[in-house]
């Protein structure tokens, strides 16, 4: 299966930061932790749709810039007691190049 789409280089994303991929179905945030782990999440907080990519990244979490919800980067789940989930996308890195895999309807639209 070659549904992986290359989106850029790891050096394009600041440590403890994020960049955005625009897709026809909405933005996806690409997060880089202090340990250089990468995560791809729908760039929309389950609370009020805040742009998670603009939040502060700490550990494997990001804090939404609008109302301080904490979201797990690994699962997209809000940290309790808040409840909600942002979609997570497969992501991989090869020689510094980052690729993500999108669900069918987004992929087809590409």
């Amino acid at each position: 299966m070659s549904d992986w789409i290359e989106i850029g280089h790891i050096n394009d994303i600041p440590r403890q930061g994020a960049r955005v991929v625009n897709t026809p179905q909405g933005d996806i945030g690409i997060f880089r932790t202090a340990e250089d782990e990468l995560f791809a999440l729908r760039d929309s907080c389950p609370h009020k749709g805040g742009s998670l990519s603009q939040g502060i990244v700490h550990g494997r979490r990001v804090t939404c810039p609008l109302h301080n919800w904490h979201i797990e980067l690994t699962t997209g789940e809000a940290v309790a007691p808040d409840q909600g989930c942002a979609a997570v996308y497969p992501i991989r890195i090869d020689g510094g190049r980052i690729s993500i895999s999108l669900p069918l309807q987004i992929n087809q639209a590409v």
């Binding site: 789409i5 989106i7 850029g8 394009d12 994303i13 600041p14 960049r19 955005v20 991929v21 625009n22 897709t23 026809p24 933005d27 690409i30 999108l102 987004i106 639209a109 590409v110």
Partner: peptide, 11 residues
Amino acid sequence: RENYLPIKKLG
């Protein structure tokens, strides 16, 4: 300047 742009635009 580039930090303000999307890393990639698809579609």
